[in-house]
Nucleic acid binder design. Structure first.
Lengths: 193, 193
DNA sequence: TTTATTTTGTAATGATCGGTACAAAATTAT
DNA sequence: ATAATTTTGTACCGATCATTACAAAATAAA
């Protein structure tokens, strides 16, 4: 194929942009921020992403969805998926301070975009619902297996976990501290037993 | 006192501005938005609030803190404060859709301002910690009274409730639905028994 | 009635916003 | 070599941003 060679990989631009969006959110991130972070100038930027800032944000969100999907595949392969989920929550405590302050880009987006951009908000809500469904299915399976004793409906427990996930998204910023978070996570996970 | 009479009450400007900030957040709210919402032009606006947009936001947050303080006073007067807190959570489910989508302006601010404005974020975190402390004290009192059976440390349960509050802040947007929220709230409150 | 004082409305300010225009650069196909 | 094609860097666009300047309006004090 003819033409000047690409020096800014699409995937790389999105990865770098995601980091900025994750920290500052959509509105507070400027094109100048993105250009600084990615190295790409306006020419390359708009040549690659005709949809501009919004398209890059959507793709950054989409990449995060893929990470959740990858975890879902792990769950499906496991016969004790709830233990994987619990360990996923436990691993949060071990993250460094910057990760705590960043939180979850999907949950952040729901909060930020509610009255700003209907589509972006609905998309983020959809992803959280998929994660919730993933929790629910894992719980249902372990209830059927008999490895999870509680009789509470899996749908309620799934919503309990996604609520916890979103609550943790703020608690981590209040207490970006391993020990505090570890205690709280263990306490909340004890409900699933 | 001499001078042209004030037609825009400070308190009223803040109340009107709070509504906009609550919906759109700090960054996405423009001065033009605030002027439209309050009726006050740039002249009155900057004459009243020398600190501009940021000062008005701080005062809108401060007003919300006062609402929590008022509730705290109610708690101190009560000898079953935990029941008041539970009813406070229960009342959330009954709110209308717009209230669900708005969420909690303090929790929203923590999420939005983390990498944007250190002071505004720290202030919002402080308010959440005060609410948490309010929860903790109520729990401790009812444990001493014997009206609350669980032996879990009040500090852990206080953090559990503030985590729930922040989680609810997103769950409400995912499911702005009375019945869904009612079920989840009852389930999570059942932990405190 | 005049003077002092304060608020108001409007018109500007410079800065930054997201996005576009376009020519130079760099490649492949002919 | 030359032509065709694509990316890149830069200059620029109008719109909007938060804020300021300032004169007219409206009051109370003198």
């Amino acid at each position: 194929m003819r033409g000047r060679p690409t020096i800014y990989e699409d995937a790389n631009i999105i990865k770098k942009a995601q980091e900025v969006f994750w920290q500052k959110g959509y509105s507070a991130t400027s094109l100048s921020d993105l250009q600084k972070a990615t190295g790409a100038g306006a020419g390359s930027f708009y040549n690659t992403f005709k949809g501009g800032k919004k398209e890059v944000f959507q793709k950054a969100i989409e990449e995060r969805r893929l990470a959740f999907d990858a975890f879902k595949i792990e769950l499906n392969k496991s016969d004790s998926p709830l233990e994987l989920i619990k360990n996923f929550f436990r691993s949060i405590a071990a993250a460094d301070e910057n990760e705590h302050l960043k939180g979850c880009i999907i949950a952040n987006t729901v909060v930020e975009m509610t009255f700003i951009d209907e589509k972006l908000e609905a998309n983020a809500v959809q992803i959280l619902k998929e994660v919730e469904e993933m929790f629910t299915q894992a719980i249902k399976l372990e209830q059927v297996n008999g490895t999870l004793k509680t009789k509470t409906a899996p749908e309620i427990l799934g919503k309990y976990l996604i609520t916890f996930w979103c609550g943790l998204n703020t608690l981590r910023r209040m207490y970006p501290d391993k020990n505090v978070l570890k205690n709280q996570i263990e306490m909340q996970l004890a409900v699933l037993s």
